[in-house]
Amino acid sequence: MIGAPLVALSLALVAAGSPNDRLGAAVASEAHTESSRFLAIDVFVDSGDWPLASWQIEIEDETHAMELVGIEGGEHPAFARPPTFDAAAFLHHRVILASFQLDGPFPTHRTRVARLHFRMREQSIPKLVAHLRAATSVDGELIAADVETVPGEEP
């Protein structure tokens, strides 16, 4: 006689789920509404005929819709290692990248010096502004160069 109500109560509790389950469902719902995607941005420097021995670039996300999640090195062996940056960039919408090399060979003309990985909202349109702060040749003299950021391959 008493066993039937207890079984019914147990079934009702199982159907309601634990508090942790409900919390997980809420997080999943939020993740669904705020769906994000990842985007890779390649950073190129064109130093013309000058051998590129060092560079420093400032990149800012004007839309504030992107979150920096990773930084890779470039394609040339001189800058294959990830550039130096301030770890606070992961919390901001701005990053300053820099790298230098003392021993050659050094790249000339257009070369990819870094790749940045961003996480962004699905519907947002990225708008990055890149500014070359300095670039030097082998002897440490400043040289003129162009910087360009283009969407890279999807990870």
Binding site: A53, S54, W55, Q56, A98, S99, F100, L102, R133, A134, A135, T136, D139, G140, L142
Partner: peptide
């Protein structure tokens, strides 16, 4: 190092060259 009013990679590069 180069006295242009800012510390940038050009100063770092020159310092590394001087050290080497």
């Amino acid at each position: 190092i180069d006295g242009n009013g800012v510390v940038d990679i050009a100063d770092v590069h020159r310092l590394a060259l001087a050290l080497r």
